[in-house]
Write a protein that binds this DNA or RNA. Structure first.
Lengths: 118, 118
DNA sequence: CCGGATCCGCTTAGATACTG
DNA sequence: CAGTATCTAAGCGGATCCGG
């Protein structure tokens, strides 16, 4: 580390990961970017997340003020999760990750094609 | 999930996290964004990462073509890690995370101030 | 039935000590 | 200096169960 400024910069990244680290936080937020979702919709979107992990992640995200949980006393219960205004500030981050993910996917596919070509 | 397109989008995020998920990958890449670094410099930058976790993360990042490892037969050995061209494509992602991290830090500090004000 | 909580086992991450 | 070995702690997933 060279100086105090650089320390703060990397500390910002580390801090961000205290909140949005873990395997599922980003995908959850990404899913909620599109629209508010119910518990089961999230579970489907996230393609096989366990209920335990989903519940934990949602609780932490709510504690940190990134998402909002609304429960309606219907029968059966309806619970909706949505991004808070603060959570929406993560959108640019999400979009850049997703863009990189698409590029990466393309790269992998190209590599496989080249291998089979010989 | 509503349609196939949305599935691909979220899948891109999931895929990205296969590569750059985990607690330390982003901070490592962030640190290497600035300049190439030696093993111990990274350990210092990352403020307390264990050697094991650092070694593991570096190995995975190298396997995925994001970073490059150069060893020089000096005594003692010198090893330098740097971003590959492909790894550098993550810079925009890093910058947006870091920006959010700074915002978040400011928010937390403000909240603490307001609490102590009463 | 929906939204979780709980129990269990496996995999990943971390602390510390030690080595080429 | 740049890691590995070992042990322990935390996180994740699967199945099952419970309250409304």
């Amino acid at each position: 580390m060279k100086n105090k400024e650089e320390f703060i910069e990397i500390q910002a990244v580390l801090d961000a990961f205290e909140i949005i680290g873990g395997k599922w936080k980003f995908p959850i937020i990404y899913s909620l970017c599109q629209s508010k979702k119910r518990y089961n919709e999230l579970q489907t979107d996230l393609n096989g997340i366990s209920p335990r992990s989903l519940a934990n992640a949602l609780k932490e995200l709510e504690m940190n003020g990134l998402i909002k949980r609304d429960a309606f006393a219907t029968v059966p219960v309806t619970v909706e999760y949505s991004l808070t205004k603060y959570g929406k500030e993560l959108k640019p981050v999400l979009l850049s990750i997703q863009e990189w993910g698409k590029k990466h996917r393309k790269k992998i596919i190209d590599e496989i094609k080249n291998e089979s070509k010989g």
